[in-house]
Each structure stands twice: as C-alpha cells, then as structure tokens.
Design a protein around this nucleic acid. Sequence first.
DNA 1: CTCCCCGTTGCGCCCAGTGCAACGGCTCTC
DNA 2: GAGAGCCGTTGCACTGGGCGCAACGGGGAG
Lengths: 248, 248
Amino acid sequence: MTQTVDRALVILASLAEGPASLEQAANRIGVHKSTAMRLLRTLEEHGFVHRQPDYRYRLGGRLFSLAQLALESIDVRVVAAPHLAALNERCGHTVHLAVHEDGEVTYVDKLESRYPVRMYSRIGKRAPLTASAVGKVLLADLPEARRREVAEALEYPAYTARSIRTPEALLEELAQVREQGWAVDRSEYEETVNCVAVPIRGIDGRVIAACSISTPTVVAPVGTLRRLIPDLLDTAAAVSLEYGGGRG
Amino acid sequence: MTQTVDRALVILASLAEGPASLEQAANRIGVHKSTAMRLLRTLEEHGFVHRQPDYRYRLGGRLFSLAQLALESIDVRVVAAPHLAALNERCGHTVHLAVHEDGEVTYVDKLESRYPVRMYSRIGKRAPLTASAVGKVLLADLPEARRREVAEALEYPAYTARSIRTPEALLEELAQVREQGWAVDRSEYEETVNCVAVPIRGIDGRVIAACSISTPTVVAPVGTLRRLIPDLLDTAAAVSLEYGGGRG
DNA sequence: CTCCCCGTTGCGCCCAGTGCAACGGCTCTC
DNA sequence: GAGAGCCGTTGCACTGGGCGCAACGGGGAG
C-alpha cells in the first residue's frame, strides 16, 4: 500500500536472514543506498534495528519488548466469539470460554443452550480449578513445578460425591489431561452437570484459555458429550490459529 | 527521518498498549484516519499487525517470528570486540570469547597478553567443556535436566592432576558457578594455566557466550586472577547490554 | 601517496503520501 | 421502521516529502 513503509518492512524482514551492511541492505530490496539509509535510520531510532560497531545493521531489541507486550494485549474473547457461536449453533449446548485468574476459573464468554433444561452460569462467574473441566485444562499446561505448587495450595471441598479431594488425585488427572488433550467433569462440581473442555493455545504454544461444552446430565450423558470432543477440538484449533495471526 | 515510516512505527508501538480501532489509532499519532488506515494496511500485509473480527487492530504474529530469528542472527563477536579490547588494555592478560558448540568450547575471539610469558591459543581452537572456566560457565546455564544429560555424556580425561573426573563433581561445581556468577579453572586443563570466566547473556537472559581472562601460573596466581573478576563482570555486563540493543 | 570502498550529505525532481469529503453499512433510538 | 450518528472505506486533487543522483570524506590497503 504505502511504498515507504512497505520498503522499510521488507528491509526489516531481510535483516532476519542475518546482519547486513548498508549496501547489502539496499541491494536486497533494490533501492538506492541513500534511500536504504534513511529507512534504516528511522528503524534504528525506534529500536527495531540496531547498529553494530562494524556499521552493519541487525534486528533490534524493540522487537522483543513488542513481542512480549503483544502476548499480553491480545483479547481472546473477540477472536474466539464467532467460532464459539458456530460451535453453539452446531451442537446446541452451552458453550463456555474461561481463563485462569487468581487461583480460580473465570468464565469470560458464554453461549446459551437451545435445550429447555439449562445449567446456570453467566459471564464473569468464577468456578474452582479443581472441580471443572476448564480448570483442569488450564492447570494441566502449567510447568511441572508450578503445577505441583498450585495443587498443594488449593482447597478440595466435596462439592459432590465425585469431587477430587487430594492434590495427588488432581495431579494424576492433570497428567491424563495433558496426554489426551482434553478434560472432562463428571458431576464433580454440580451433581446435575457434565462438561468437556479443551485448551486454546497462544502464539507461544502455551494455553491461554479453555473452551468447553456443558450439559445437564438429563440432557446428555458423558458418552454423548465425548462424541462432541472432535468438534470442540476443531473449534479450539481454529481460535488458536487465528489468535496467532496466521503467522508466528 | 522518513515521516511515513516514523508514523507507521509509532502506530505499531501504540498498539502495544492494547488493541485499537482505526480512529483510536489515528488519534494516537495525530493523523487523518485515512492515513492511519493506509499505514495499518501495509503493516497488516506484512503481518506486523493483525485485524480482529471486531475490526480492531492488534500486534501481529510476525513480531514473534522476527524476534525469534533475531536471537539467532546476532553476531556476538562484533558486539563484544571493543569491550574485550578495553579489558585487555586494562589488565594486560589474555582475553578470550568462547561459545558452546557441539559438546565443546570454541574460542571465537582472542586478545593477546602483553606479558612475555603467554599461553598458547588461537581463534577457532576448541577446548573441553569439563576442564575450562568458559566451559563451566556455558554449561552452568543449561536447564537442570539438559545439564545432567550433557554431564553424563561427556568424557573426563585427566588432563592434569586437578581435572574434574566425574559427572557428579562437575554438576556440583556447576551449581557453585550458577550461584556465584563466575567460574575458575585452576590448572585443570593445562598444568601451567589458570583462568576465570563470566557469562555473557542474550536478550532473553540466557547465556550465549563466555568471556575469560587466562594467565600462566608463573605470571599470576589464582588469587591475583580473582581480583580481576569485578572488571571481567563489568565487561560482560556491558556486552550483554549492548547486545540487547539497549532495549528489550 | 594514491586508490578504492563505503557511509554520508546536499539537491532538485516528481511521485507518492496526505487530508478532505462523500459514500455505505451498521447499530441505536425514538 | 425511519432517521441519525458512528465508523470504516474510497476517489480525488494538492503538495510535501521521499527519491535517486552525484559529490564529499574518511579509513584501509597496496
């Protein structure tokens, strides 16, 4: 679109192949060296390229700080919304989007079931990490040490007869979740609700959110819910991909 | 320097504060929204910004791939050279710059001692990881698991009477190196040579190279060498800082 | 000392980037 | 349901700024 910016970005990308002198850089994008110099100077002023003592240019530290900030500033909800809507359209059940926040699960988005019997929840509602499918998915991705630390610190109330009651049991289940790539909640929080969840991953591969389908036990037994996992996984994959900007 | 590129980079940096609509972005840098749009489009074509489903712009995945590539393409030698020269000027001893390569240490730069009795070495020379101060520094930064793995795989020849002979002894010493931030070699490779080394860190904090001062034992005992450590640490810090592009 | 290489700078041309204004799809309101 | 307002998009004419050229200068090699 705009020629100048276009050239500047091409020259920046070309530096990814390795440091270059002024003339090399100019040749790479086919412009006069004076033009390349002005572009590189501007990039340098902003820290996107760095000048080595031998006068060659290389990629600069600003790229790192920006990449770091980008990870934090991205809003998952917006990216996920249409995909969740499509999933909800297909299966008709309650769909949730949740993130890990202060030792609890927070539901940041929700689409209502089309079935007459619905489970209660709302956006902003919080749930225990120990007794929800989304909680397990979010915990399972933590590094081994941190996972153990969190598991030890959590409380394990008996929400139902099936609730997980010990750190050991939780860690064992998390290992399984890591392996199979999805988690299930069989009436572990509310007696009448089952749930399956899958991870949504950020650009760096880390889990940033979890996406789930929840159903009252009277509407769908766990077996029925399991058959929805492929669709759920596809949805999460689509969100992860788009969230990554297609590149990365 | 060039107005267009300058504006594009400012708009890019402003997105680090969070996603923005077209008008917000235009206001942030004080240009007409049509101008901002052209800039953002160009940035988008190159993947530096990404458009969310709600039409807002956020930082794009290209930043991550570039940041990744930058880590690999940076040439430590060029950045370190003047600092090493200054260090050599001050202390008069042999100064080395070394990196970890294929299970050995490779000296990538060297400045000669001003003393008549000199140790032998040259750029490109390789040395064992187990019996050199630079080797210990480079090993000490590896993650725990990888460190143990490498330690197990290495050989432990008796270069001298003081050479480290077992993985256990090496790992114990590496723990100390991690703690104190520098490593020493007391005639462990060559009977007549002592050496102290410190790490040079990349933008991500990982050790990318090691810098050392080596002396024949007849010129300086270990005690004398230890007094040079602060200067050595300052030198390494200066290199690390410049290597990071001043930002990051 | 001269030559050569490469980064730097001043200059004039003209193209490309800019701001304006009109368009259109969308949502909210009455 | 019509109107209003918001915001992204597009076509256009102007001119400012980006462009290539050519000359300068410093450092290294022969």
